[in-house]
């Protein structure tokens, strides 16, 4: 099911096409916040997965459902230049297939061994685990949970 969206970010208009490759499922409700009061600086997360504090801005705006949702805070998201991945030293793990990131198993800064599962990519309704090609430290995670990626898109930088 393809849907077209027009998104204006920082004065630039992007026309994006979103293809939903998984059957629609109800978005999980955000977990109730039970800590001390805080000031919301970003749109409430739609997924209960914990996100690393230094998570980069979504590299591909069309990729993130949360970013596509018509929230007024959308302007806060700055588009990052596409060179982000290349600018970082280390080995970039690229998407071997088009698909949706259904689970990210590591956090930035994590030590991983060769063969450890980094993330799970759902493609053609099949879940594929992406393993670390070698041992190292997860330097950057360039995608978010539920992001849809194209073949060759950078996913994770290992160092």
């Amino acid at each position: 099911m393809k849907r077209r969206f027009k998104i204006t970010v920082g004065g630039k208009t992007y026309e994006v096409e979103v293809e939903e490759t998984t059957p629609a499922e109800p978005e999980p409700a955000p977990p109730p916040y039970i800590g001390p009061p805080r000031i919301l600086t970003e749109p409430p997360k739609r997924t209960p997965t914990p996100r690393p504090a230094l998570s980069p801005p979504p590299k591909k705006i069309e990729a993130s459902r949360a970013a596509v949702a018509p929230t007024p805070q959308l302007q806060q998201i700055q588009p990052s230049p596409p060179e982000t991945a290349a600018a970082v030293t280390g080995e970039t793990i690229k998407a071997p297939l088009p698909g949706v990131v259904v689970s990210i198993k590591v956090k930035e800064g994590d030590q991983v061994k060769q063969g450890d599962t980094l993330l799970i990519l759902e493609s053609m309704k099949m879940e594929n685990s992406l393993a670390a090609p070698r041992s190292g430290v997860v330097k950057r995670i360039l995608v978010q949970h539920r992001a849809s990626v194209q073949h060759g898109d950078p996913l994770i930088v290992l160092e």
Binding site: P96, L97, S123, N128
Partner: peptide, 15 residues
């Protein structure tokens, strides 16, 4: 796809 990946994790025949 799974037969290919079983021997080589980096072999992606799925598409």
């Amino acid at each position: 796809h799974l037969i290919a990946r079983e021997e080589d994790q980096g072999n992606w025949l799925l598409m």
